[in-house]
Simulated scan of single mutants.
Amino acid sequence: MSDIIKMEFAELTVDGSNYLTWALDVEIYLNSCDLSSTIDPASQSTSAQKAKALIFLRHHLNKDLKNEYLTEKDPAVLWQSLKDRFDQQTAIMLPQAQYDWLNLRFQDFKSVTEYNSTLHRIVSQLKLCKQNITEAELIEKTLSTFHASNLVLQQQYMTKNYSKHSELISALLVAEKHNQLLMRNHNARPVGSLAVPEAHATNQSNTHRRGRGRGRGHGRGSYRGGRGRGRRNANSLQDRNKGQNKDKPHSHKPSSHQHVTNNKQACYRCGCEDHWSRTCRTPKYLVEAYKKMLKDSKGKSKHGETHHASLPEANMTLKDDNYDDNLLKMGDMNMDDDDLLKMELDDFGDQE
């Protein structure tokens, strides 16, 4: 039963459009099973052989056709009835196959494989219609339909005198593959340009560039963001802060720690303009007196009185020659913070 359920090929349609291929498949299968004599009207086949051939034929018919030939019990009669009904497909298919063969051109296809497939399909249809195509006609059809720009190539293939069309197709497939590789190499980079450098060459150049020349010093004179020592560190820190302040927008409104009559930035602790607040060495009692005076000046300004916040004593003390000389000495000697604090206390003791 499994052999009956299994369908060897497509069934015959109601309109018989696939009759030519269906009839060819049936003949091939019956020959393989030694049942080809069952469809011959003058055959001497046994009843078992005829029944087996009839079952096969009905199994590969459309449902409607099977109902139409329900009473046929002889495979030879059924075969001849289908042939008389659908054999006109030869006359229907032949004009279309001839038209396709006439208009077939090699230059209309993008690849040799597509052209070869279409060519063999048309030739098969012509053979089903009892019209054979020779090898010479196949070769002439292919070479005569080359593009006009391939005239030299066409003459080269004609001089080789191919005897089989398959040999010509093989040569065309090899040439097509070589052309694809040639175009790929041509489009890899523009004509006259250099090749792209290898990846390891770039890495070596970058590694060489990152050598010892880019190292940073760790000496005492370099500024690393921590506490600097010496006059060079103080000057570099001031220059750096001045450069940062240049980029900031200036405000026309005076701050509480600046003089109204002077646009220069003053020390936040004592109000002087010759040093920064981080390097300010003004004694604590003078800083407190300066802050108290600023506080008093703010209170008087609220009652309509104007008073400039300044501390003459602090300015006089800060501009003392001994204080400037001590600052220069401290910068040259590269002293530590403990030594600077000790010298500062000694100087303040002498002033008191």
Rank of each mutant, 00 (worst) to 15 (best):
S256M: 08
E313T: 04
E305D: 12
H307C: 12
G304P: 11
L311F: 10
L327Y: 10
T261L: 09
H257P: 00
V260D: 02
T279H: 15
D332W: 06
D274N: 05
S301D: 04
H259T: 01
H250I: 03
D320A: 15
L237Y: 06
D338E: 11
H275R: 13
L318G: 09
M330A: 13
N245K: 10
H308L: 11
D336N: 14
A309R: 03
A266Q: 11
N262E: 10
T261P: 00
A234P: 00
L327S: 10
D247L: 14
C267P: 06
N315E: 14
C272G: 08
E313N: 05
P254I: 05
T261I: 00
P249D: 03
A309E: 01
K284C: 00
Q238W: 02
H307P: 00
D339R: 09
N326Q: 12
M316D: 12
Q244V: 11
S236E: 07
K284I: 01
K319Y: 08
N245Y: 03
K284E: 08
N315A: 14
D239H: 03
K295S: 14
D337T: 12
K298M: 06
H250S: 03
K264Y: 02
L294G: 12
N233Y: 11
L327D: 12
S297N: 12
E305I: 08
V260R: 11
K253G: 02
S277K: 08
D247F: 09
M335V: 15
K300M: 10
D324V: 07
N315F: 08
D274Y: 03
N315P: 00
E273Y: 13
S251M: 06
K319M: 11
D320K: 13
K319F: 02
R278K: 11
N263D: 12
A234E: 13
T279W: 12
R281Q: 09
K248Y: 02
S251Y: 03
W276C: 03
K253P: 00
S310F: 11
D338V: 14
K300Q: 13
K248C: 01
L328C: 03
S255Q: 08
Y268N: 02
A309V: 06
G243V: 03
K242V: 09
K264V: 14
L237V: 01
L237N: 14
C272Q: 04
T261M: 07
C270P: 07
S277L: 01
Y323V: 07
D320P: 01
N326F: 09
T306C: 04
L294C: 13
C267W: 09
M293P: 03
H307Q: 15
A289G: 04
A314E: 09
S297Y: 01
E313L: 04
Q258C: 07
N245R: 14
M316E: 15
N263L: 05
V287T: 07
R240A: 04
S236V: 02
T261S: 15
R240P: 00
T317A: 10
M335A: 04
K246C: 02
T317P: 00
K264S: 11
N262T: 14
H259G: 01
G331C: 01
L328T: 01
S297V: 07
L311S: 15
K264A: 12
